[in-house]
Design a protein around this nucleic acid. Sequence first.
RNA 1: GGGCGAUUAGCUCAGCUGGUUAGAGCGCAUGCCUCACAUGCAUGAGGUCACAGGUUCGAGUCCUGUAUCGCCCACCA
Length: 959
Amino acid sequence: MTELPPQYNPQDVEESRYKWWDEQGLFHADPGPKRTPYTIVIPPPNVTGILHMGHALNNTIQDILIRWRRMQGFSALWVPGTDHAGIATQNVVEKALAKEGKRRQDLGRDAFIRRVWQWKEQYGNTILYQLKRLGSSCDWRRTRFTMDEGLSEAVTAVFLELYRKGLIYRGSYIINWCPRCQTALADEEAPRQQTQGKLYHIRYPLEGEGSGAKGEGAVSPPTLRPSPAFIEVATTRPETMLGDTAIAVHPKDKRYKALIGSYAILPIVNRRLPIIADDAVDREFGTGAVKVTPAHDPVDFQLGRKHKLEFINVMTDDARMANVPEAYKGLDRYDCRSKLIVDLEQGGFLGAIDEHAHNVGHCYRCGTVVEPRLSPQWFVKMEPLARPAIKAVKDGVITFHPARWTKVYLNWMENIQDWCISRQIWWGHRLPVYYCSKCARGSGLGARGKGSQLPASSPQPPAEGIIVSKSKPTKCPTCGSTDLKQDEDVLDTWFSSWLWPFSTLGWPEKTKDLACFYPTNTLVTAQEIIFFWVARMIMAGYFCMKRPPFTAVYIHGTVRDITGKKMSKSLGNIIDPLDIIKQYGTDALRYTLVTATAIGQDVFLSEERFAAGRNFANKLWNATRFVLSTARGSGLGARGSIDQPPVPSPQPRTLSVPDRWILSRLQRTIERVNGSLEKFLFNEAATTLYDFLWHDFCDWYLEVSKIQAVAGRQSQVTSNRVLVQVLETSLRLLHPTMPFVTEELWQHLTRATGDMRPATKGAPSSIMVAPWPKADKKLVDAEAERLFEQLQGVVTAIRTTRAELNVPLESRPAVRLAASQAAVRSFFEAHRPLLQALAALGTVDVGAARESPPRAGSRRATKDSGAGKAKDAAAMVVDGVEVFMPLAGLIDAGKERSRLQQRVDELTKQLSGIEARLKDAQFTAKAPKEVVDQTKERHAQIQETLKKFSDHLALLQSM
RNA sequence: GGGCGAUUAGCUCAGCUGGUUAGAGCGCAUGCCUCACAUGCAUGAGGUCACAGGUUCGAGUCCUGUAUCGCCCACCA
């Protein structure tokens, strides 16, 4: 056994230890009937991902759960993998291409896709390597990618099945369109920028109010003398008025109430526009009346659907006017705007023009103002899918932690919108949809974005010429034509990740893995993707598997910097987990992340906090060094001294009070850690162990053991056994949180003491598969805890006084202790050497408490002067003068008793009062039912509390 | 506008179903290189638990309101 260096250096152990775990196959889980499965699927990071603190927190939590369950004996499987992340990945590769001066169009679709795969092979596993640095114990043999063959098959299978059941349909949708790049943009690709614009007020004459307009197409050219009876609307984009098909007002708006249901006339075009009512209209803004252009505005689009309005597309791909009166045809959108302003002015339709700042989407690539645009897309009808997913959560089949997310989830699910699943990019799962050019001729289906005017909003019977098929059909089933083209679009990234919990286990094949590990147990993720991912997985789980994908969802907080901002590159406030690992070690990173976050609360991080984790690891390292050295010194090494694995309990009769105390504290720690982990209170589990190990074990027990070691052979051996047992057990408890340092120390400790053999023959001996500690109720020892606390109280009191009086260590003052309890007195007498050593004292006399403490010559009197009562106190002789000090711990025992007694008395009295009232027939007969119920409830409550207090009191009195 | 969260020591935060004297880490002060650890040990200072009401024998904890900060969603036509 090599000597451990006095400082823990994580760099020396982490990478090689991880490799060893992996080589030993410790991350692998086999499906089998022998053990209960416990499964987690990773939220697949983007292949383009670079590890950030969010990942670090997310994966640390998953790893804690999986390591904990693995040690508990579950067949614990953590499925890793990555997401193809359509747009993000395509962008990365496009950027690389741009450096060569090429665009993806220059390569063509197939070559570009090949290029993306190349990129993926080369860089796509970066994030997975980084997860390994975190210590994640994923089963890497099962690593999946959302565009794997198997997963792609799953995607197609689901699409086909949804289509067969009428849950997939084609319809129109508003997308962001860049007229310059000629491409559709995702919302995140069209960031909104504060822009100074103008708000134009336009007057629409009311029909039948004596204006020139008397109905559709009745007046042409537009009248130059509008009636004073008009409705005024406001817009920032006047050119879109050419596509208006309604005017909307708020249903409760008094100004317009009378107009609802009547019509206005669209100036210039002279179209009849119904005046409709909708809550979405803001009465305060502008004039309170809104022009509705369903084909050119997202909100208007929704209104258009809801009120079944006409959708008129008035622009071409490059944002020139089309489908409009001759005078405007072909004009650029801004030229059209200028011309319209002039024409409206001339026609007397123009009201005020106000300055107006608003947020406008701009193309992330060229900065052009994007144009919302109607476009044919594919949708999933969600409502039928949502029903079982709502029920599962309402029935508690799936639970959210913290519970408050349940409401958020249900609220969204109950108002669910259909899901637009088609994306106009190249990287992704291509839609299994084919068009027959012959059948589809003239319907415009093959051509995207040429001003489609079909506002389908519900499932439609399969249109002619559309074939949904697993692979390309040889000919059109309707007309027999062989001229078939696959849809150009790919599916939304989430369309593959919503299948993740079962597609990674082999679905649609019926695999052993699927039978064993599905449904999974816990899903760990952040709040941002509850809708995108969590909700959809639940729906897919019920649709495909008829069972929930998981039973618990743990939502952790967002990692923020110290000022509360989200960490992001552009803000420059990133703390890179890999830097922290390098500087402080992985365990420090994990410990700090976990302790920094209470359940579901956001995490605020500053770099200094990681030092605490590093220090803790180092503390453990040195505690183990000490325990090893004593084990060697007492001949405990080279096995034999400890007989039965895991670690036998030392013989109770040889145990001292401190031995019993630390063992008792250990049992409580085990229970607390278990309870915390069950409730997802990872911070509590970690700090419980920190407090126990640092303060109870190192600060007190370790020091005590040094003294016990010199007291005699027997106590030395016992003490060493206890040291080994407590430390070894604690390391196991801490392993899920701090895997590396615990494994390292556990290896040294078990090898030196020879007490740990693999549970299964032939299995590698690793803390990863060592049994999870169980609390031994027999070792819970309230008496020992009480007595040792007395000792701590005395030692602390003496140390405090010494510090205040500046008594140097070398001068070892004599002390007289006065204790009122006989048990405490005999304990002190038996542990005199302990007191002497821990408080650096000379002689220690123990006597009964006196009626009143002597005052003569005292420099420091007790503040408390409850004369006549026995006082627990200590008198220390400093420079020939006796200094008296109250013993806080001892006095409190008495104080607490009387306080408790008082409470018990109070409660008893109250209880009998309530009982009397409940027995009173008049009360129960006459009082309202709720009052009686309330009284009963109160009765039960007090009874429970009383019992708690009485038990505590009885315990105190028994000592 | 809708929803949610927070407000506890100088700083960053714990405090689960109400019940001993409200805790930790960092920082600060004092004394210690005590043979596991100076990434350490001992001791200490520092809190009207945002504010105002209420429920209760008892409130940091539960209820109502106010103020401030923050997040998510929708969005100013």
